[in-house]
Design a protein around this nucleic acid. Structure first.
Lengths: 392, 392
DNA sequence: TGCTAGACTGAATCGTAGT
DNA sequence: CACTACGATTCAGTCTAGC
């Protein structure tokens, strides 16, 4: 599988795990354990094949961009990683790059939990091939996201537009994996109470954040900004989740994961990069629990039956509920249903019926009258939830 | 590809050319003449094969996106989204879509002059496949360009990021076609002397520009804004050039070409669309020579998410924000939300909560403590805006 | 005529838990 | 697995009706 710079002796690639790391217990009998918060030095695909299936929650991949393609037409070369020569970013042909891409995408897919999602970043040199391969393998694209660079490299020769963005693809394991993590409410709250869009404006990785070697040279040519990874992890993972990065490089994913209270698994075949990553991550201090704790999102709050409001006395049987303009009126029944004329049903059904609509959220439609003004029953629901929380 | 509504008699697709158009002399003996400023009604690939080789200077293509929509999407107000469900956007499989894509890309490539360039627009549903096919066929990608929509449709279910952009690929005929047209200086002058970037901020096609039928219904479901086409034509073509659009639709390419003093050739298989395009273009008045200039990006004040302040390091997760009299204190979370006791929300929501008010502008309420004194976060926003403004 | 409130719209792959 | 009920969810703009 190509030349590795790990220096591991012998023909078969051996997975190396640094000595300080924890190792999770194997989720299934006979499987190798999950090396949490570790950097595996070795070939990406071989290492992936040794991980237990369905074991990670999120994948972030920054694969080689295939920047130095030569020629236009493909050569008759079906070999996979043999086509990778000493330059890690040089592939003999589109075919070889596609074969490589499909191989790691397949290997990654095996270790993803059912509702895990995958992020891949790339530029126009490679992202179209990655995206097409993703779709071919059954991944389901959720969004493409544009990283707009604040300070891109200008186009010196004036022959093209300034290449001011890169593209990320966010995909689930398949069209039926609908339970993926997405912190809609938190993202909206952090964005002026507007939905987060698919175009993100984030500066390049420069200054102190950029890793330099003893000579002041940058350690890795394409180190990604931590802000980018932070937005990815905050969008699509929870504290305690396992985040896999099969092209770990200098460990931006690991550093951000540690800071945000996520576990990481990094795979990197270049031991120089891996060493730099290990030192970098060791210096990261995790944020305190309160700062990291998942923001509440409405969908995961406990369900409260409307009957509980009646039972607790917040709403009285026999009283009328009204919409915000007092155009509709329904009577509360002791069993937690509403009556509108002859019709009886849930707060939602009766709300829909009153408006002549197919559906309605009764919690945000009906109000109780208190001292001449209207109180939304959703506010009463919040009270009940607060009591439930205090009791728990 | 599919049924044609041209109504042309006979089995073989016949190319129809409207009677008012000019026809260029054939560039080579034995070839059919070039139908300038005409709409060819018929199958795209058949029509392309009848055009002389190496005869057009620029191609703009807006192919079907293969959206793969299922079911209906309902807005929170219970209205139904008018989705693209036309037959022309339905394909049996990715394979079928790829075959279609390669066929038209090949046919287009034959009619391109050596230094002609091609633009294709698409979304994440199709653009990766288009890009990969482009590369496979020998096209050479010059840029990918992101059309950032000023007013995209929101994500109504809160399950994904707002799909706020589409992608254009700009490619030359091959890696050796280096003489392509690119108006670097004109674009730079029209962009406040900054190099034109690969991310363009342009509103959707709405209002008077959007073609409506006698019933007030939109004529075409995916009409593109003229501002987008204008930027394409101004950047990559010269007055007098021949611009080909193989998926002409309602003729945005033709209208902009005529206005900017370029010739067009449109191919459209739907005669209703073609008729609407013909009428539209007839009403276009060409601009006088000097008036032809690039429109700069709309420079509306960019919106800054509070999250950007956290990401840029101006405000640190875990630190406290204070009001001007230090009476209230909230903790910054890494996702750009604030925490006040158990409550988590946007800077505005938490500011309102702290004061017991219904609303609050968090930007002018919260301060960070720096060297013992307070800095209004609105001042930090101004810093970010300066970066974004430079990048717009 | 001018203003405002409300309706309408845009290339969209847009549920989930419980029985 | 199928079925049912719950109940969560929208931004920037244009256009129309009504005052």
């Amino acid at each position: 599988m190509g030349t590795s710079r790990t220096g591991a002796a012998g023909a078969a690639p051996r997975i190396q795990v640094s000595r300080t790391g924890r190792v999770a217990s194997a989720p299934r009998m006979g499987m190798s354990p999950l090396p949490l918060d570790e950097i595996i030095v070795g070939d990406c695909i071989a290492a992936l094949e040794r991980l237990p299936p369905q074991s990670v929650d999120l994948v972030f991949a920054d694969p080689p961009y295939n920047l130095q393609l030569e020629g236009t037409l493909v050569r008759p070369d079906n070999s996979v990683v043999d086509a990778v020569d000493d330059d890690w970013d040089k592939f003999a042909s589109f075919q070889a790059y596609d074969a490589f891409t499909r191989a790691w995408l397949l290997a990654v897919r095996r270790v993803m939990k059912k509702d895990a999602t995958l992020w891949v970043i790339g530029s126009y040199h490679n992202i179209f091939r990655v995206g097409a391969s993703l779709q071919d393998l059954g991944y389901w694209i959720l969004n493409d996201v544009v990283w707009r660079k604040a300070n891109p490299m200008p186009n010196f020769r004036g022959k093209r537009f300034t290449n001011a963005h890169e593209t990320l693809i966010w995909a689930s394991r398949g069209a039926d994996s609908k339970g993926y993590t997405f912190h809609y409410d938190a993202l909206k709250a952090g964005n002026e109470d507007l939905q987060m869009r698919s175009d993100w404006f984030i500066p390049l990785c420069t200054g102190e954040e950029r890793l330099k070697d003893a000579n002041g040279q940058k350690v890795h040519p394409t180190q990604k900004p931590e802000a980018l990874l932070a937005r990815v992890l905050l969008s699509a993972s929870n504290p305690g989740d396992v985040v896999l990065d099969p092209f770990f490089g200098t460990g931006t994913t690991g550093a951000v994961a540690k800071r945000l209270g996520r576990h990481f698994i990094g795979i990197e075949r270049d031991s120089t990069y891996a060493a730099a990553a290990r030192a970098r991550i060791a210096g990261v201090t995790p944020l305190e629990g309160d700062a990291i704790a998942a923001a509440p999102d409405k969908r995961s709050e406990p369900r409260v039956p409307f009957l509980s409001l009646v039972e607790s006395g917040l709403v009285r049987p026999g009283e009328a509920l009204l919409d915000d303009r007092r155009r509709h009126r329904a009577v509360v029944r002791p069993d937690g249903t509403l009556a509108l004329g002859p019709a009886i049903g849930s707060i939602h059904k009766i709300g829909a019926l009153a408006q002549g609509l197919p559906a309605c959220n009764g919690w945000t439609f009906w109000h109780a009258e208190r001292a001449g003004s209207l109180v939304l029953i959703d506010d009463y629901r919040a009270k009940i939830r607060a009591q439930m929380g205090a009791a728990a």
